[in-house]
Write a protein that binds this DNA or RNA. Structure first.
Lengths: 160, 160
DNA sequence: ATTTATGCAAATCGTTTGCAAACCT
DNA sequence: AGGTTTGCAAACGATTTGCATAAAT
């Protein structure tokens, strides 16, 4: 089943893949971890721990942190860092099949997803791998983000 | 002299430009701030506050933090964030005339500079501006980093 | 003189951790 | 049972901040 799917991944496949990665890391797929994954699936942008807790039922702060870290180590979740004081978490791209980048607002901290044409993506990827091999780095992934001001903050600061 | 320089900037010009930006922000160019700028000029990669303090003479931790923040607000310094627990600081690119990106080692936190061909840079820039205008974001700058493992950490983990 | 910058020590706050109870298998 | 996960509260640590002193204009 689902052997024909190409770019998008349905929820059951996703959970199956998460379970696999956790098993590879000798970790259990507990209900709390599943809820975390579900919350991230439902979001269209990386979430802070505070946002995760707001949206969750019984999740506890310490368990959220612990399990997000554990999921990160297992390659299920990616931590997104910005200049603001909160870490953010999203599902790993190879689980969602959705390669994307971030618009980061320096004023309010908002992080929004976007993507660019494959042609650009491929050129960047090739260039980065070239650089990496020259420097002896092994590439895990790249990030290509846009730092600026979101529409809401723009208008908010347009008093004139 | 130096009126003909194109891509590189000499030290006196740089300090003059820093002074200008600070004046625009109603800030003084004190000796402590000048020392911070000199330390960053001398480094070939973003520095943590700890590294700044090691390399400095009389700089104090709180003043380093305060002044790096102030220099950031004035557009003199850029804060570089990674997954590790330390903020890093470098000179703003439009002061150094050196547009670059970062190789970030997830194992030891090392951050190294690199650059890519202008053709790639231009294509990325165009694509990002397209995305930004569609989303109503105003672009401050972009970042295009490479996350992976540095040579030292690679060999360290190659026990086999 | 008055404003601004500095140094020290204390406070802040997101995140991590110790430990005992609850939960698997 | 034996090991793991959870929740609570305490600890941690990078960064920020209050306040008194030292510059700077």
């Amino acid at each position: 089943m689902s052997s024909m799917s190409s770019t998008s991944v349905d929820a059951s496949d996703l959970h199956a893949n998460v379970a696999l990665r956790l098993r590879d890391d000798d970790q259990r797929y507990t209900s709390g971890r599943r809820e975390l994954v579900d919350l991230l699936v439902g979001a269209d942008r990386p979430l802070t721990v505070a946002e995760v807790l707001e949206r969750s039922d019984g999740l506890t702060q310490s368990s959220a942190y612990r399990n997000l870290n554990l999921l990160e180590r297992a390659g299920v979740v990616l931590r997104v860092v910005t200049d603001d004081e909160f870490g953010r978490f999203e599902l790993a791209e190879d689980l969602t099949g959705h390669h994307h980048h971030h618009l980061i607002c320096t004023s309010c901290g908002l992080v929004e997803d976007f993507s660019v044409p494959d042609s650009i993506e491929d050129a960047v990827d090739a260039a980065l791998h070239r650089v990496a091999s020259r420097a002896g780095f092994s590439v895990d992934h790249h990030r290509m983000d846009l730092i600026g001001t979101c529409p809401a903050c723009r208008s908010r600061s347009t008093a004139s």
